[in-house]
Amino acid sequence: MKKRFVVAVTGASGMVYARRLLEVLQDRAEVHLIISDIAHKIAEYEGVDFSGFDVVYADNANMFADLASGSFRYDGMVVIPCSMKTLAAIASGFSDNLITRTADVCLKERRTCILMPREMPLSRIHLKNMLSLDEAGATIMVISPAFYTRPRSIEDLIDMVVARVLDHLNIEHTLSTRWSGEY
């Protein structure tokens, strides 16, 4: 049976990471995509196009969508990039839109929930919210590419981050070099 994932894109810079994750996942799993209104604007500003994906929830306010229910089965959720507003809402259980409700459901159903903020510096409030989410079962993966892979391009850096997400979703890939302990 094909795995099923929810990918949510929120209003933070770094739309290229979301686009690349979607490109890789679409051939390996069924993907349900939610894009917030501000994410659409930021994607346009950053020159990233999200057209061409199958299951898209165009209305982030649609609390009647199947994803808003615990009875809708999926293997995990990734919020990439995850704005601090969305992270705070999820941390406090404030489910006022489809993205935050789906993350709330993901956590309560004990499914894989990966939140990927792309922000710096981090305030004490950000860190407390991240700790709260970790304690609730979420995985926090701050978008921070590594250089041990010896990247030659921006795409290599993006693939390194996406590779780590795929590892946490148990999806096989060859996107990035793994650390061997030797140099």
Rank of each mutant, 00 (worst) to 15 (best):
L25W: 03
I35F: 06
L127T: 14
F50T: 07
A68W: 00
V7P: 06
A136H: 04
F5E: 04
D27I: 01
I125D: 06
E119T: 10
D66T: 10
L122V: 08
S180W: 09
A65E: 04
K128I: 05
L122S: 05
M77Y: 00
A12E: 11
G70Y: 05
M1L: 08
H173W: 08
M120I: 12
N97R: 02
L22Q: 01
G52C: 07
M160I: 01
D75L: 01
L166M: 09
R178Q: 15
S132Q: 07
V79D: 02
K3E: 13
T10K: 08
G76M: 07
I90P: 04
G93M: 14
Y57P: 01
K85V: 10
S13Q: 07
L157N: 03
L25V: 12
G76Q: 03
L25P: 02
R101Q: 02
L169T: 02
A103L: 05
P117A: 06
E109A: 01
T174G: 15
D156K: 05
A39Q: 13
I80T: 15
T177R: 14
T100Q: 13
G181Q: 05
N62G: 03
I158G: 11
N60V: 07
M116P: 07
V9H: 03
T86G: 11
I42D: 01
F72T: 10
S71I: 14
D27E: 13
L107P: 13
P151W: 05
D37S: 14
T86M: 07
R4H: 13
I154T: 15
Q26I: 10
T102H: 02
M1K: 06
F53S: 03
D75P: 01
G137A: 01
D134L: 14
K108G: 09
Y17V: 12
R20C: 04
A58K: 01
M141S: 08
N129V: 06
T112L: 04
E155S: 14
N170Q: 12
T102R: 00
K41D: 10
D134W: 02
I35A: 05
G52I: 12
P151N: 09
Y183Q: 09
M1Q: 06
Y183E: 15
L157T: 13
L33G: 09
M130P: 09
I42H: 07
A91C: 02
T174V: 12
K2S: 15
C106M: 06
N129G: 02
R118W: 08
R152G: 15
I34G: 03
D54E: 15
E109S: 06
K108T: 13
E30L: 04
F94D: 04
S69V: 08
I80A: 12
L98G: 02
F94M: 15
S69H: 08
M141Y: 11
A61Q: 06
D156F: 06
S132V: 03
M160F: 14
D49R: 11
I35C: 06
G181M: 10
D104H: 14
L87T: 03
F53A: 08
F72R: 07
A65Y: 12
M160K: 07
L25S: 01
F94A: 15
S92Q: 15
I35L: 08
K41A: 07
M63T: 03
P121F: 07
I114V: 08
E23L: 11
P117F: 08
S132R: 10
F64L: 09
V105R: 02
D37A: 12
